[in-house]
């Protein structure tokens, strides 16, 4: 451990881990979103299934999948642990607070938004990752694309996904620029650019993801 022990022991170190894992998840979401967007080709899922097959068999991708799971787990456990520790730092709460006067509600609600994301993530993994990786339910006749169609034929599922994406959007609205601040990058010229990119990212990525269940539900994608 030696030189890296500060990452586990100090408050700033723990936040640096949150920032790094958060940024890693942000990069992952671009790839995830890009691959899934292939369904919009509206080719009956041919291209999408090919990409999914590649992702499922390529050794490099499978290795990254393990790194990704580790990253998510660290982010979740560290995040929830910090929420818990930060609660302890104010044992007696105020009778009156006016948080909106000094900060955004979603900046103050990262633990709540993260927990909603976690619930969504469990449902989401059960829907797709579990079925495709841990069972033999999928084959040439029943592809991942078919699975998507089936899952998104239920209204409540579509609703859960939309709620998940709204949580993601607000989580990132704060998280994107927050990660750079944590890592020490706050600059007169670049921070406004980072914030603008973060804002666009937090709208566009969840929006594209949101259109997927809607498109299946409404039959735009066959």
């Amino acid at each position: 451990m030696g030189v890296f022990s500060f990452l586990l022991k100090s408050s700033i170190g723990k936040k640096i881990i949150m920032g790094l894992t958060g940024l890693f998840l942000i990069i992952f979401l671009v790839v995830h979103c890009g691959v899934n967007a292939l369904i919009f080709m509206n080719d009956g899922g041919v291209l999408f299934n090919e990409a999914a097959e590649f992702m499922a068999t390529n050794i490099l991708i499978r290795t990254m999948e393990i790194v990704l799971f580790l990253g998510i787990l660290v982010h979740i456990f560290q995040g929830l642990y910090l929420v818990f520790e930060n609660k302890k730092a104010r044992p007696v709460s105020y009778a009156m607070t006016n948080g909106n006067a000094n900060s955004k509600w979603y900046s103050r609600s990262m633990g709540l938004l993260g927990t909603l994301l976690l619930i969504f993530l469990i449902i989401h993994l059960r829907h797709f990752w579990y079925v495709s990786r841990l069972t033999n339910e999928l084959n040439a006749n029943e592809t991942l694309f078919d699975e998507m169609k089936e899952v998104f034929s239920l209204l409540w599922v579509v609703m859960v996904y939309l709620l998940g994406m709204i949580s993601l959007s607000y989580h990132l609205m704060h998280g994107f620029q927050s990660a750079f601040q944590t890592l020490g990058w706050n600059h007169k010229k670049y921070t406004p650019i980072i914030s603008a990119i973060g804002f666009c990212y937090s709208i566009i990525i969840p929006l594209i993801f949101s259109i997927m269940p809607i498109a299946f539900y409404l039959g735009w994608i066959k």
């Binding site: 936040k15 930060n86 104010r90 955004k104």
Partner: peptide
């Protein structure tokens, strides 16, 4: 100074800007 700050029981920064 950061070590002492942690020892005193202050919370960690989540960049809310408050």
């Amino acid at each position: 100074m950061v070590a002492q700050m942690d020892k005193e029981g202050f919370g960690s920064c989540t960049n809310t800007g408050a």
